[in-house]
Design a protein around this nucleic acid. Sequence first.
RNA 1: GGGAGUAUGGCGGAACUGGUAGACGCGCCGGAUUCAAAAUCCGGUCACUUCGGUGGUGUGGGUUCGAUUCCCUCUACUCCUACCA
Length: 834
Amino acid sequence: MSSRYNHKIIEKKWQDVWSDKDIFQTSKDLNKKKYYVLEMFPYPSGKIHMGHVRNYTLGDVVARYKRMKGYNVLHPMGWDAFGLPAENAAITEKKHPEKWTYQNIKTMKNQLLQMGLSLDWNREIATCHPEYYKHEQKFFIDMFKAGLAYKKEAEVNWDPVDKTVLANEQVIDGKGWRSGAVVEKKILSQWFLKISKYSDELLSDLDKLENWPNKVKTMQSNWIGKSIGAEINFKISENKSHITVFTTRPDTIFGATFLAISTDHDLAVRVSDQNDNLKKFINDCKNLNHEKIKMGFDIGLTADHPFIEGKKLPIYVANFVLKEYGLGAIFGCPAHDQRDLDFANQYNLDVIPVVMPSNTKGDFKIVKEAFTEEGVIFNSEFLNGLDIEEAKEKIINEIEQKKIGRRKVNFKLRDWGISRQRFWGCPIPIIYREDGEVLAVEEDQLPVKLPNIENFNETSSKLNNIFEWKETVCPKTGMKAFRETDTFDTFFESSWYYFRYCNSRLEKPFEKEDIKYWLPVDQYIGGIEHAILHLLYSRFFTKALRDLEYFELDEPFKGLFTQGMVTHITYRNKSGEWVEPKDVEKFKEGFRDKSGLIVETGKVEKMSKSKKNVVDPNDIIELYGADTARWFMLSDSPPERDLQWSDTGIAASFKFISKLYEFIDKFNNYKSNNTDDDHIIENLKSIINEVSENIEAFQFNKSVAKIYEYVNILNDALSKKKLSKNSFEWSLKKLSIILQPFVPHISEEIWSNFSEKLCINEVWLSEKVKKKLNLKIAIQINGKTKDVIEIDEKLSKEMILDIVRNNNKIKKNLLGKNVIKEIYVPGKIVNLVV
RNA sequence: GGGAGUAUGGCGGAACUGGUAGACGCGCCGGAUUCAAAAUCCGGUCACUUCGGUGGUGUGGGUUCGAUUCCCUCUACUCCUACCA
């Protein structure tokens, strides 16, 4: 019986089998070694995109492979279901965001099912479900009671378009990451989590994360931004108060020529109360966008230099001093800091060099470039002659002895503001009693659910306006109270979802013993865009929950893999408008759109709606099937690099899958008397082993190339009838197994010709390959290869060199030359030096 | 400004701890099949060449019998970050 490859029938068939037999339901079998593979869960935006397809395909390869390797695999999926888009859609469609969200989840789940992923859907979660978020309300209360969550007045980034507070990380170049609107400053009372308490641990534990990309670790390390230095008090000459500054270069103290404080430093505020010019200056700094221009205002006071008797330093309010970092005050040493030098040159301040390069001869002068490298201290009394490190040590000791300051470590990392003025998020479980007390909601009152709203619109959806929800009473005193009307930042939900998968339907958030068995996640896979935010917050959450005695675990993700983007070439017509790929046709000399107008090809860019270079996975799966889509995702590009989508590429994948299908007919009609096919089988075996090695190394593109090779060898042997029927059967069974992680449907289809069982339940073994007796070695002259010969490995060096000397090609090449040296590397090369 | 990374045919990319550069896929060229085309199959495909060879992994140098691989220099591009004292 002969038939064409029909992906729709085949893929549906196997998906049904897997699902009917509950193949991918995870069991908790403590005798088995576990493997937890997780892809970053999606936001239910409406439908899946190619980025998802790539992400989940990569994860599925790992999950299926590990399963066949005998691991108890946990491979779950869920939905990061709170967020602004749902709210916006709800307002436009006048539907509750819940409806919109669950509708999207339904659609997207269907699409994921069609991809044939080996997911345990029984553990599915949606973070907008009260049974999920009630647990994080409890976490928050625990943190609140432990002093890890606190409230403070804070200037926040206010996005005037989205009407919401943005995290620092969500502000890019002073603009909102989503709306692109210029962000304004606004003072609000906000909830914060004390991530800063863990700065040191978050930094030092990065070293434990061996299976994380260095790039991500560096990014986190920079973000945490640890710097070691000192705080130094400068006495104000005119009165008894003082200014404390932070510096990482206390060794340059003798080169200090001014102090600078930020525009809202206490002293600046105090002086400005009596000085209208300063008030105006501070206002200018806040309102005008000065880019990199440095501006300062001499406030008329001076500070005493702590080590130079009688030396007074002018005090400036300056726009380049950050209020959030350190103490909002610095001492300026223009000779050794570029910013200070620029400032000094502008305001004609002294420049006193105190460090010079150790090889300096004669005069050392600073003009336009500060000297910030290693060197020797001079002009600095008791520090003279020391190197920078020694000088730092000595001066800090001196400062501490004189009791005018101390050693100090500073971090860039600031506490995590989690309040959001939005409806579609998890309510913060706090009540404000009429007597002013701020109380956590009682545990038996959890969850604090979101209210139902009939007519969802801009005004009705503000929790602050919903009095029947907002008004409550204190269960202890019966006093009137108001609920907190802000909701959590959605990074709150994604900071712990990987714990919930251990037992998603449990009354408690999770069991300790489950966490002990399943965590940490062995392989986490997602986009590099989460390198800092999500991953840092999750690491913090793990440490915080550990300290709240939920479990013993320091780090949630043992292995991390960040995949590249899916890109596509862009097209534009003559008027500069983007043209969708599906509307472009190729002609002899170029491309045209449907109406026949010339289309120019542009840069290859990340698929995005605005550039109209998006390919919908739906269309691809409909037309070619999941196996083809998966195969294409894994071919060619290494997973960490960008993958360029192309029509020819997807067509080639389809061709290959169809070709695989033809093996079934080929086998049924195959006849051969040949039994001498050992060398072919040996060849295939070593390819199988290479496929495994490449999977282990996360180089799926290389596995794909090896499978192509396997199929090519097989086809070649078949056409020449070199393979026995038995060997053919062996080859096809092995082929099914190595295909299983990549293209599981066609794998099962081929496998089903030989077995009643399922291929996914087979064990993946490494093949024993016989050692080859004959080796190919290259003969080089001066390192250039001239010939390749086949020899028996057992031959001695002398015998091999003899063969080489008598080789005709080599003889020719050696005419008129003297061999100086003969090098033989066993099994590899012979090199003759002439 | 600071940090990280990348550079190999027309394209995506291979090359194990230094040892036959260009595996595998795309594209292209030639042939078969076809009334013709698509599809399919077979062959070729780094460049130059007097067909003996010669050159070739961004640039220039170094180490080595031998370098895509190790070291230094420069160049280009990408990403992150940005007045963090």
